[in-house]
Design a binder for these strands. Structure first.
Length: 647
RNA sequence: GCCUUUGUAGCUCAGAGGUAGAGCACUUCCUUGGUAAGGAAGAGGUCCCGGGUUCAAUUCCCGGCAAAGGCUCCA
């Protein structure tokens, strides 16, 4: 008997019954076999050395596959547990999964407290174990035997996990002296793990339940090459240097005040200028795309949110309503702009000819976040969205989606994001009861989103069951300069609010119809977006956005007057500059300007003063030579054009 | 919200049961210097806030508040 294995490229190969993924890899090439960590068989990730179940599709997973990485990290967690058990006999183990960057294991060390000082010993033990090329072995165990094993080991956490499993579906994995309850899969042996580092230690409740015992969570990561670990550590350090909270302080962009309140950012002049520039950029782009600006108040009657349904769903987790002293009316700080915009739509009869109606507002909204969740600008309690709501006919959804995608791409390009993809969130395939809106509209909208994403040629992943209850959505995921993933802009279709607000338009058939609403925010929140661009650029903002494009550096204060005149001249040419009028040497002024990441330094001394020129130095680049103010302005304009894609 | 850690000059941080220090920044003076730190002097503190213990608390204890790292949540 032979089995047919279909590979990702569509080719079909024939193997003996009982062949493993590893056998397939070896038949292709030895080199490939050396790199195979696990395999995806009929869509399920399995051990590479487990016999294939019969005819199947097979994808061999290596370090280059997300699932391959996850397999290795999960196996690494087992090895770390073995090392911990060897060093701390009696330690009990919770769960140890792979995560986006590495893995963790939750461990109960009993009365001992384990901290950073203990990392070195664990790392040494880990390396000792991994270097032995220990094989991972899978075994199926009966529930009774599994319970027996962990009862003897006195590990109540594993016992609790076993309780939730069905007899006949329980597997153990063993490597060396360590056996763990585990679904798998695992890498063939430990020789794939060449570098290991414990990154962090933190407390974590057993099963995420604050009423239960707090375990010690060890975060760690492994790599198949030492060099990759070194690079990762450099990247982490770089990320720390780029932390927007640190850079924001260094560049005087924003601050927080205890008196004002946690999670309420205060924008300093330079940061406010940055915000303003982003807003203007977006406004201009939106005007060209047919949006209409509106403005609505920061509060709205509680009734508004009862109508929208937000009161019922989020009311108790919101800032509580404020009341008027005489009449006892209740108002909420607005947590979103859409209910206000719905009322603008409803303010007069609408014809199908008016659609799509695109209402935009840089609306500041307030949402209660738990105090422990606040994080710099990335997670705040008051923030401004570049919000807009598109009211359209069902047949216009796709076209509007395409236009919004164009807008988002314009933004991403202007900010030097080169790596991005779209995530489309659709309904759960099985359970459709939790969604509102007609089947017909959902099908239409879901198809429209898929088509739109495909038409603009973006890399797209589709997630089922991730749609909001009121409609499908598309999120943009970007990778920043350090390879970290962020979710930025979002586009959501909404059938719910038009229903709740009873929005209508008159169609060509002279009948009333319900419009479809699209929520979209390319930046998402300005605060969060600025946090991302700070970390993406490390504070070296694109020239068009930088509050300070150039700084004039007089060689001595004899040339201060000349510099002030040049500043005016450059300002007339739309170049934003300041003058470093401190009593310091040029070397010092250059150093400080470099440190504050100003794109251009303009040195003015005797020669330049006489000729009316500038000696131009670029941040991080060095001397560019002497230019006239006009030539410099032209250079800056040219750079900006290229960045904004308007060249 | 919960757990752990932290809170000292504008910033980064040291410090001890007896009223506080460094570097950078700031002010003044000297210096007028050509592509990554010129020199000198000076000013600057409710040691997060409120209680308690003590002859004496910024230091020890308790309670708040804020921040960091987690856990849970996110229209």
């Amino acid at each position: 008997m032979k089995i047919n294995v279909t590979l990702p490229d569509g080719s079909v190969r024939s193997y003996d019954q009982g062949a493993t993924a590893m056998d397939v890899a070896k038949s292709i090439s030895e080199g490939l076999a050396r790199n195979v960590l696990s395999a995806k068989v009929n869509g399920e990730v399995r051990d590479a050395n487990r016999p294939l179940p019969g005819d199947c599709t097979l994808a061999l997973l290596t370090w280059n596959d997300t699932d391959g990485k996850a397999t290795m990290w999960h196996s690494s967690a087992h090895v770390m547990a073995e090392a911990v058990e060897a060093l701390y006999p009696g330690a009990k183990f919770g769960i140890g999964p792979a995560i986006e960057n590495g893995f963790y294991y939750d461990i109960d060390f009993g009365d001992r407290s384990v901290g950073e000082g203990d990392f070195a010993a664990i790392e040494a033990k880990f390396k000792e174990i991994a270097s032995k090329k220990v094989v991972f072995t899978r075994s199926e165990v009966s529930k009774a035997d599994a319970v027996k094993y962990f009862t003897e080991k006195d590990d109540e956490y594993k016992l609790e996990l076993i309780e939730g499993l069905k007899d006949g579906e329980i597997t153990f994995y063993n490597q060396g002296n360590f056996t763990d309850l585990c679904r798998g899969p695992h890498i063939p042996d430990t020789s794939f793990i060449k570098a290991f580092k414990i990154l962090n230690v933190a407390g974590a409740y057993w099963r995420g339940d604050e009423k239960r015992k707090q375990l010690t969570r060890l975060y760690a990561i492994t790599f198949p090459k030492q060099k990759e670990l070194d690079e990762y550590l450099v990247m982490l350090e770089e990320a720390k240097k780029r932390d927007h909270r640190k850079v924001g302080k260094e560049l005087d962009l924003f601050t927080f005040s205890e008196k004002v309140g946690a999670g309420l950012p205060l924008w300093l002049p330079k940061g406010a200028a940055l915000r303003e520039r982003l807003i203007n950029f977006m406004k201009t782009a939106q005007e060209k795309a047919g949006y209409l600006q509106v403005a609505t108040p920061h509060i709205g009657s509680k009734q508004l949110y009862i109508t929208s349904g937000h009161w019922e769903k989020y009311g108790k987790d919101s800032f509580q309503p404020i009341s008027t002293p005489q009449e006892g009316e209740q108002f909420m700080l607005k947590p979103m702009n859409c209910p206000h915009h719905c009322e603008i739509f409803a303010s007069r009869p609408r014809s199908y000819k008016d659609l799509p109606l695109r209402l935009a507002e840089f609306g500041t909204v307030y949402r209660y976040e738990q105090s422990g969740e606040l994080h710099g600008l990335a997670r705040v309690r008051g923030f401004t969205q570049d919000d807009a709501h598109l009211f359209c006919r069902p047949d216009q959804v796709k076209e509007e989606f395409l236009k919004v995608i164009d807008l988002v791409l314009l933004v991403l390009r202007a900010l030097n994001f080169e790596n991005f993809e779209a995530q489309v969130s659709l309904r759960d395939k099985e359970d459709r009861s939790k969604y509102i809106g007609s089947e017909e509209n959902w099908v239409k909208a879901e198809q429209a989103i898929i088509d739109a994403a495909a038409e603009c040629g973006m890399k797209t992943t589709v997630e089922y069951g991730e749609a909001a209850f009121y409609g499908p959505k598309l999120d943009f995921m970007v990778k920043d300069a350090l390879g970290r993933r962020w979710q930025l802009g979002t586009i959501q279709v909404d059938y719910n609010l038009p229903e709740r607000f009873e929005l209508e338009y008159v169609g060509s058939d002279n009948q009333k119809h319900r419009p479809v609403m699209i929520h979209r925010a390319p930046f998402g929140s300005l605060e969060r977006f600025i946090a991302v661009i700070i970390e993406h650029t490390g504070g070296r903002f694109p020239l068009w956005l930088n509050p300070e494009q150039a700084i004039l550096l007089p060689v001595s204060d004899k040339y201060l007057d000349v510099c002030q005149k040049l500043q005016q001249q450059l300002s007339d040419l739309d170049i934003r500059t300041t003058v470093d009028d401190r009593n310091e040497k040029v070397g010092r002024k250059i150093r400080d300007a470099e440190l504050t990441k100003i794109p251009f330094m303009l040195v003015v001394g005797e020669k330049e003063a006489a000729d009316g020129t500038l000696s131009v130095r670029e941040h991080g680049q060095g001397d560019l030579g002497v230019l006239t103010p006009e030539a410099f302005a032209a250079l800056v304009r040219e750079r900006i054009k290229v960045q904004l894609g308007t060249a």
